[in-house]
Write a protein that binds this DNA or RNA. Structure first.
Lengths: 219, 219
DNA sequence: GTCTATAGCTTGATAGAC
DNA sequence: GTCTATCAAGCTATAGAC
């Protein structure tokens, strides 16, 4: 990003200069950024390789196609997400602590791959762009199932005493979801990991009251 | 605005058949549906008029252009949203009741204009599609300000006793936001107005505890 | 006015030298 | 592993027939 990019081609002079990380990583980063900003369809292979300071065959060498580099981006992110789920599954401790751990790590992963996250949102909510399709919902369900299991533990341990397993899961999901989307759309608001933790704990504190699953019928 | 507009042009015979509502509404509905499903850019004026059972000049008569019909769609929805905010502002009663009212009505409006909502999401998160831009964030801020005012009232009335005005606002926003997005992406889950109300009340009940704004530092 | 054929550009993708 | 050079398919714009 901070090195010179002498336009490739034309001359027999030393090539653009080996910028930073290895070529493969650079291509992935630039592709993620462009896909997220302009959309998959509107991004050309030429732009990607130009930004990465390489030529086209290099991209086709590492990834088999434009779809290939897109798939690699999503697969890598989803793989890291699944690894996180597994890590959370094996962790021991009180349910609330494990919930805070999982949500915090999900937000951290999201931040670390913010460009891929933006791309995923764009594909999920945006118009069809001719992308290979990933079943993003499936991952969402896996995550939700993990949350539900943790919340159920919380009720079993009497860490939660109000509401139902399902409703508390919704609450956790809602708060995390908002944290993620605020990072996407308004990162300047600085709704980071500390805020997420604080608000989750505020909610959790409220669920430790006396009764379980009550329904007031006021008005 | 509501006088009959027998489709101009070609023949003096009765037009194709006035299907259901008036032509203008039909064009808006079909356009919303197409824009939401295929994206604004990928939708052609031809498709819109074909689905509406009219000819091209009819569309250009009611709206000045493709951009015109898009703007009309968003402006109408945003106008209804603003009217809702104003209605909520004038309403009297306890803060919690007013919060439940506002969020319920927002969800109802969202459901009533689900295609426009889908379109807005697609434009907000999706790639640039050459649409006239609306400052959707501005409406979000207006809404958030209204929520904040209500929450502050809630604290003044001692209806809320835990957390801060800001954090409780985030909580309400998170829950509503999830309800909206579930309707968009997984309407089959049936997360409707009753669920929203129940979960909000669960959260509110938790905020009526003893202390205000505490910060436990467990683990 | 409307349709159609086509020139010219851009795209994703590849061959073969080094 | 990376380059130059080039391909075939698809798109846009438009000239020219009707």
């Amino acid at each position: 990003m901070d090195t010179d990019h002498t336009a490739p081609g034309q001359s027999a002079f030393p090539p653009p200069a080996p910028v930073d990380g290895n070529v493969r990583e650079r291509l992935l980063n630039k592709a993620a950024r462009l896909f997220a900003r302009k959309g998959y369809a509107a991004t050309t292979v030429r732009e990607i390789v130009a930004e990465a300071g390489v030529t086209k065959p290099v991209l086709y060498y590492y990834f088999r196609s434009k779809e290939g580099i897109y798939s690699e981006l999503l697969q890598e992110a989803l793989k890291r997400f699944e690894a996180l789920l597994e890590e959370a599954r094996q962790r021991r401790g009180r349910a609330v602590e494990r919930l805070l751990f999982l949500t915090d790590r999900v937000l951290a992963l999201f931040l670390d791959q913010i460009e891929v996250a933006r791309l995923a949102y764009s594909v999920y909510y945006g118009p069809p762009q001719g992308t290979p399709d990933f079943d993003l919902d499936a991952y969402h369900f896996k995550f939700q199932a993990r949350l539900t299991a943790l919340v159920r533990e919380g009720f079993d341990n009497r860490e939660f005493r109000r509401g139902t397993v399902e409703d508390v899961t919704w609450l956790v999901l809602a708060i995390l979801n908002m944290a993620l989307e605020l990072q996407l759309s308004h990162p300047e608001k600085g709704f980071g990991r500390e805020n997420l933790r604080r608000i989750l704990k505020l909610m959790v504190a409220g669920l430790q009251g006396p009764a379980s699953a009550e329904r007031e019928n006021c008005s």
